[in-house]
Amino acid sequence: MSIFKSLMNTARRKSPWVFHANAGSCNGCDIEFLTCLTPRYDAEQLGIHHEGSPRHADIIVVSGPVTRTTCEALETVYGQVPDPKVVVALGSCPATCNVFAGSPTIVGPLDRVLPVDVYVPGCPPRPDAIIAGLAEAAAILAGDKPRPIHGAADRASSASDGQEA
């Protein structure tokens, strides 16, 4: 039984598939994210695969300060990703709303909407930092690193994550 469990954990560490959601980003982070897949950084060496469908993904990468129009779509996409899953906040916007803080059209930061597991700060972050963040997310999937404690609203979902792992 433990052999199967360690095989599964290795597979989760080696094969993180990423879905990228833009929640009102200025496209700076999105461009840096795509740079990770190009020959210079080549994230496929770590098994990172950019998926078009959230059903296939393990990691949801969110960029942008979560505007009012994207908030509902983000929740839908989060529900479409099968468990176990990890949320990565890409850039300063989902972490703090950055220069958009206080705007009436912003719902963010992201942790008010989704349980964020990994933050990759920067405006935009360097591709090296994004790959390091994705590797950390893969470590959380594999159980190498503990999942951060989320707020009271997310406690139910993180408890159910624990049962499946």
């Binding site: 095989l7 597979a11 190009t38 080549d42 496929e44 060496q45 695969h49 468990d83």
Partner: peptide, 28 residues
């Protein structure tokens, strides 16, 4: 595909681990 694009590409066990990981996910 990766080598011809100037990348290093995935290690040889990649398709197997992709398969195992997908088996371990909880379907919706």
């Amino acid at each position: 595909n990766a080598r011809l694009q100037g990348r290093i590409g995935p290690p040889f066990y990649q398709p197997f681990f992709d398969f195992v990981k997908l088996l371990g996910k909880k379907p919706i």
